[in-house]
Write a protein that binds this DNA or RNA. Sequence first.
DNA 1: GATTACATGATTGTCAACAATTTTCAGAGA
DNA 2: TCTCTGAAAATTGTTGACAATCATGTAATC
Lengths: 251, 251
Amino acid sequence: MGEAEQAGSTQEGAARRAGKAPSTEETQRVFESLRNAVLDQRLPPGLQLKEQALADAFGVNRAVVRQALARLEIYRLVTHAPNRGVFVAHPSAAEGRDLFTARRYIEAAIVELAVERLKDADIARLRALVRQERQAYEAQDVRKALRLSVDFHLQLADAVGNTVLASFLDEIVTRMPLVVLAHRRESPPACMLDDHEQILDAIAAGDAGRARALMIEHVGHLEGRVSLDRGTQQGDSGIARLLGLEEGCGS
Amino acid sequence: MGEAEQAGSTQEGAARRAGKAPSTEETQRVFESLRNAVLDQRLPPGLQLKEQALADAFGVNRAVVRQALARLEIYRLVTHAPNRGVFVAHPSAAEGRDLFTARRYIEAAIVELAVERLKDADIARLRALVRQERQAYEAQDVRKALRLSVDFHLQLADAVGNTVLASFLDEIVTRMPLVVLAHRRESPPACMLDDHEQILDAIAAGDAGRARALMIEHVGHLEGRVSLDRGTQQGDSGIARLLGLEEGCGS
DNA sequence: GATTACATGATTGTCAACAATTTTCAGAGA
DNA sequence: TCTCTGAAAATTGTTGACAATCATGTAATC
C-alpha cells in the first residue's frame, strides 16, 4: 500500500512538529508514509490495515509496523479493535464538528501571533508557497495543490514559532482528510483560491483583526465542503464512498 | 516506581480524552500510571526509565512497556535517545513559554464555549470540585489540592464537550508539571484560591468577556510561578533540582 | 597524575516462533 | 433457502532469545 513518499518540505517539518524523536527510524518511516497517505486521501476510512501486509510492503518487521500503528492510533488516524485489527478512522460528524471548531480557535491564535512575530522573509516564503499552490491548481494537479494548501497552514504555524500550537494544528489538519472522505458534500462549492493570499496580506499589513476574521472565514469555507449536520449518519457504508473518490480543492 | 493510582474522576476522563482505545489494556495501564506520576510531580526531569525495571514493576512484558513509553514520548512527557533509553522530559524555557501561550488560547476558547454550552448541572459539579479543592488546601494536602486544581480545568473542558480542545488542554496540563519542576521560582507567590470560583461565576453569569479575561489572568498567575525568561538555562543540572522537591500550590 | 584503549556489563533494538482470538467457509439439518 | 455447527485459515497478541549499541570501570601509556 503506502510506499516511499516524495520528499518535500512537509515531511521534515512534520517530523519536527508531530513525530518527534525517531523512535527507531524504521518506525518513523512507516508512520510517516501512512500519515502522508492519509493526508493525500489515499486511505479510505474503514480500511483494515493488516500488520503482515504492511510489514511486507515496507520490508520491516511486524513489531515495527505495530509501533507505527500504535502511533497512528494516538493521532486518531486509525482505530484499534482489540484482537480484530486496526482500521483507518471513520470520524463521526460530531468529531468533525469538534475538529473544525478547534481549528478556528487554533488558526485564529496562530494568525494573531503571526502579526506580531513574522519576519519579512517568512512572509515572502509563504507568498511563494501560495504561488506554487495556484500553479498546481492551474496545472490541474489537484493532489499536489491540496498538499500545498495544507502546507500553507502548517508552514504559517511553523513560522510563528510556537511548537505547541504548531503541533496542535498539525494534528487537526492531518485528521481533516478523513472527515472530508467520510462526510463529503455531493456538490462541493467553488474553490477559494484567494483566501490564503488575503490572509497573508492582512498579516503583512499588521491588521490582526482582519487577519483573524479572514482566517475564521476561510475555515468556514472548508467546513462548507462537508456535511456535519446533527442528524448525519456516521458515514456512508462502503459503496457510496467509493463513488466520490475524485478529490476537490484543498485546505 | 509508579504503581496503582487512586481511582478518581480524572483517570477515566483522561482515558476518554487522551488515551483512546486501550491498545491492550496493559499498555494503557502502564501509560496512565506513568502519566499520573508526572502529574503528581513524582518523576524528576532527566530520570531514566528503564524498560526492564518498569516491566518488572508493572508485571508486564517489555513490549508493553515499550509501547507505553512510545506513547509518553508523543505527549513529550519523555524524550527518547536512540540506543540509550527514554528519560523524563526536561522542557526548555522556550517550550515552557510555548505551553503557557498555547494554554492561554486554548483555555480562552474553552471558557468562551462554556458560556454557551454549560448546563446548570455542569456548573454545580464544578463548584463542588472547587469546594473540594479548597478543603484540600485547608487540610494541607498539597498533592491532592494540586490534583484537584488540574481536575478543575480538565473537567471544565470535558463539560464543554469539544473532544479536540479537551485533548489539547489535557496534553498541556500534563506537560506543565515538568515545566514547573524544571523552572520553579525560588519564592512562589501567594496561592490564588479564588480564581477558579470567579471564573465559574462569570461563566454562570453568561459573561464571556469577563470569563475569558479571568481565565487568561489565571494562567498568568500560574506562569508567574516559574521563571521562563529568555536567558534561563535549560534547567539546573541534577543536584539543585533534588533540593526543591516539596511542591507549591496548584494549577 | 591524567588520559586513552580496551574489556565487561547493562540496556536497547530486532526478530521469529508460539498462543489466543477472530474470521471464513464448507457442510448438515430444518 | 436459510441457519446453525464446527473445522480450518488468517490475524492479532505475547514471549523469549539474540544482536547491536552504549555506559562503566580497569589497566596501560604518556
